[in-house]
Each structure stands twice: as C-alpha cells, then as structure tokens.
Design a protein around this nucleic acid. Structure first.
Lengths: 241, 241
DNA sequence: CGGAGTCAGATTGCATGCAAATGCATCCCC
DNA sequence: GGGGATGCATTTGCATGCAATCTGACTCCG
C-alpha cells in the first residue's frame, strides 16, 4: 500500500544526517587526502614526521581503509613517503631536491608564458589584477601568511591563463611539494617590495600579451626569489621575524 | 633438541613459496598498479573501458583492498577515472586534452635541454647512442612496436640527462598518459626516416652540449611528429599497416 | 506500445578481523 | 656490563563481511 512504500527516501531510520550534510560515501579517501594535504602544506605535519594510521583514523574519524587509500594518493603526489611495514612519513626534500623542483617550476612557468599571453581572457586578467591588489594590501599590513598565499595564487593563476589543464595540474602539484621550503624566503621583508614591483611588470607583460617578455620576467622573478630563499634556508641571512 | 629447532626458516609449514618468489607483502598495491599500468599502456585496456574489481582480482590474484589502492595511484597519475559507486574506467582523452599534453611534453623537453647539455655524463651519451642504434635497427626491420618503444625511451633518456628527478618523473608520467594516442602517428613509415635524421641531429647537439640548439631541434622534432600524428588521428592520412 | 515503478542480483564503499612484521623491554649468557 | 636472544604489545598488510548503491529486466498501468 501507499503508506508502506512512501517513507522519506532521504534518510534511513538508523542515523539521521545533520542538515547540510552530504554523504561522503565514495569520496572518503579523496576527502581524507585533502585534509592530510592541508595539514602537510600548512605545516601541521612537518617534513619527516612519521604518521601512524591510528593517530589519523582517530583524528579524522575514518577507518583505516580510506585512510590507506589517501596515503597512496599523497605518495603518488610526492607528499608522503611510505615504507612497507613501517608506515608513512611526510616527504622530506634535500636542498638538491628543492633546487631541482624549483628548476622545474621555473621551467613550467616559462612553458606557460606564451600560451598564457595567447589565450588569457579578460576575466583572467581581472582575476590576477585583483589578487595583485590583495597582495599589495597584505604587504602594507605586514600579513606574511596572506602575502605568501596570494603570491602563490597569482603564479598559479598566470599558469592557468595558458588554458592547459595538464600544465596547470602539474604546476599545482609541484608547487605544493616545495611550498613549505619556499615559505622561508618570503620572510625577508626587503624582498617583498622588490617582488611587488616585479609582479607589476609581469602583469603588464601578460596584459599586453608579450609572451617572450613575460617568460623572461617570470624567470628573473623566480631566480631572484629563489636566491633569497636559498640564503635564508642556508641561514646566511636572518628572516625579519 | 636439535631436530625441533632446526627447521628450515625460509618457509613456513602451511604454504611453500615457489622458488625465486619474494613476498609482496607491503608492495601489493604498487605491484598491481604496475601491472595495470602496463595493461593500459600496452593497449590491453582501451581508453574508456570500464574496469570491474572482480575481473582484476581474479585476473591478478589479489584481493580488493590492494586493488583499490592501486586504483587510487593510477587515478592520481591520470590513467584511470573513478566514479564513486560506479567503479573505475581507463581515462579517455579528448583531442584537445592530447594537444595540451603534447604542448606540455614539448615544454618539458625544452626545459630539459639546457640542463641536459650541462650535466649529461659520458655514460648517458653512450646509452642514448646505443638506443639510437637499436631504433635504426627496428626501422630497418620494420619493427613498429620496437621502434615506437625505443623512440619514447630515447626521449626519456634525454630528459633524464638533466639529472632533475622531479622533471624526469613528471615527464615520464605525462608521457605515459598520452602514449597510446601518439602511437598512431608512428605508423606512418614515411615519417620514420625523417625522424631518424632528426634524432641524429639531436644526438649531435646533445653530445656537443649545445643547449639552445638542442632545445630548438627537440621542439621542431616534436612538432613534426605531432603534426603527422594529428593527421592520422583525424583520419586524414592512412597508416602504413 | 511506452514509461514509471520495483525488485533481485551484482557491484562498490568501508569497517573489521586476523596474520605478519616491527619495536621495545627484558632476560640470558658470556 | 655488554651484546644478542626472546617474548609481548603495537602496527601494518591484506582478506573478508556487510550495507549502500547501481543495473537491468520485468511488471503494471495508462
């Protein structure tokens, strides 16, 4: 009869989902991977730290199966290192590894420069300019974290202007891998104003669709930044705070 | 007594491992991912083909847990596409996707060119030359599969000359992703001799450590090859067999 | 005949159980 | 006292079980 089959299909009798809750079924591992990635990129899990499954299953409220799937994802992304029978640890990059990753990142931006100039839309110009404005505000307010985050965002946006999904994906992944190692360099306040000026030139070149110029500006900008970062990492100069 | 404790420690009573067998404990997922990757890159699993877990657990002799971990690895590599509650299917690339991936691959080789010239060792020169010799032999014998495989191998080796692990890793992954789509282009025999000549110039430039020249030669070589491939994929010319 | 409903079998997502491996404290023997 | 052996608790790797979801064939009504 009607009353039998008419039960509200949205929720079962056993557990009532809190409102706004969307089931994560089929997305647990992805979701856990995102959480873990945030923890690593945010510095909550420092490089080299060993990660026990139990710690995370309790912390994130999932069971071991999706957690272990997330480990595989992050290992493939290069953020975790898994030793059989001994669990996972946050990947640790040697200075040489970071150097090589930076070489790759500079290269990827060079690759992006000309397609970006050829294909960027007006909306993308506007988005990059808006971010630039926010970054200047962070510089003015001395907001280190915001400055750094938006800086990365601007570079990702410029790469995205090339409308090449594969390029964007690879740039994002490699950028994440070295994120924490680059953070140090942005702590030299002297570099900030210089970087802002370089960004302004970069924006100009992008908006005027001058591909080769953009490529050279990006390369120079990166090499400048990386030089400072390397000095900080090598303790040759002291960060401002 | 002696006879009690003297049992051969290499094998337990329950299951006798076949000789040469090393336990895969802790490596199942990785191993399965390798097998699956080979199946996809070898064309045994065509693009778009849906993959059921049962098919593979039976085919590969593993249970679902490591198989599902392997799925996550291959999804992160871009070789599989997983739809929640509906399983995995081999990733399918649109012509635009392949175009963009090729743009990235050409870019990565350009990035590799100068460091490769700067850092390649004599052993690496020799390795690339040996591969080139093998490729010429394949061309002579009309061995399509061998020619194609060694061709890819040569390009990977050139990138590896840059001694940049991150670059090598990314190049390998992206190269794999479009492997099957590029295969078609190598079926035009007319292109083979042309490609061999281009490779010879490329080798020259590498050995003489002429970075900028190498970069231009690689770019031109790729664009030539990709132009032919695109024609074949678009059915504008017919492959030789 | 067409389309919504529905129902069983198959498939997937995740929790859990068990065995192998590890780590650590203790014990032993020299 | 020191350098292993040994046993126990913990952790990891994988197999399996159960519930949610999908699929597709069939039914039934218009």
């Amino acid at each position: 009869m009607q009353s039998d089959s008419d039960m509200a299909p949205a929720e079962t009798a056993s557990v009532v989902a809190p409102e706004g809750f969307r089931s994560l079924r089929g997305r647990s591992a992805t979701h856990v991977a995102e959480r873990l990635r945030d923890m690593i990129l945010g510095g909550d899990l420092p490089a080299g730290r060993r990660i026990s499954e139990r710690m995370l299953t309790e912390g994130l409220g999932v069971t071991r199966t999706p957690l272990r799937e997330a480990f595989k994802i992050l290992e493939t992304e290069g953020l975790l290192h898994i030793v059989p029978n001994r669990g996972a640890q946050v990947a640790e990059l040697s200075p040489a590894d970071v150097d090589m990753a930076m070489e790759l990142l500079v290269g990827l931006e060079s690759v992006a420069a000309e397609p970006a100039c050829a294909r960027a839309t007006a909306a993308q110009f506007a988005a990059v300019e808006a971010l630039h404005g926010q970054m200047v505000a962070c510089q003015r307010d001395g907001d280190l974290m915001g400055y750094f985050r938006i800086n990365q965002d601007i570079h990702q946006n410029i790469v995205d202007c090339a409308h090449n999904p594969a390029l964007s994906r690879v740039y994002r992944a490699e950028s994440a891998r070295v994120r924490l190692y680059r953070f140090a360099g942005n702590r030299v306040r002297q570099r900030w104003s210089c970087a802002v000026m370089e960004h302004e030139q970069i924006l100009q070149a992008l908006k005027q669709r001058q591909g080769p110029l953009l490529r050279e500006l990006l390369r120079a900008h990166h090499l400048n930044g990386w030089r400072v970062t390397r000095l900080v990492l090598g303790n040759e100069i002291r960060p401002d705070r």
